[in-house]
Amino acid sequence: MTKVTMTVNGKTVAKEVRGNMLMTEFLRDELHLTGTHVGCDTSQCGACVIHVNGQDVKACTMFAGEAEGAEVATIEGMANADGSLNTIQQAFQDYHGLQCGFCTPGMVMTAAALLRDNPKPSETEIRDYLEGNICRCTGYHNIVKAIMAASGQDVSAIAAE
């Protein structure tokens, strides 16, 4: 067992964990933060994307022990302080950027990382940045549109609205 201490969504947590415990298991099983999802076992689908020290990473491909001392943010910590949806979350709702919701936490976390580094990404840049996030429901149309809208861009001319 290894002792790990980290900050998750602003709260300090300390736990004794197995050496082989993944961050997904740590969040879901130990902290009961089940918003971080597991959709594959080859590090490709992105349903588990979280932020570790401000960087988007796949929680299924990282051990809890690797987050020692880190600041971790998950989908559960993304809403505004008053509980309302943040800008990205709100844009996903406004532009129907989700259907079954399973990939959605990873999409929101990835989008947040993108917009922090690139506040006005082009359509191509968004599609490129989403390479590691698979959605089977939306055909990506409304996800890309939502991210453009969340960055303050006018999406009214985009096809099909």
């Binding site: 594959c40 689908c45 191509t124 968004i126 996030n133 698979i134 959605c135 990506y140 890309v144």
Partner: peptide
């Protein structure tokens, strides 16, 4: 047997669609 060989459509494989 995994996404390493089964190619799932990703965001950069598809365009904006015109639907009516």
């Amino acid at each position: 047997a995994s996404y390493m060989d089964y190619a799932m459509p990703r965001a950069d494989d598809v365009p904006f669609y015109a639907v009516d």
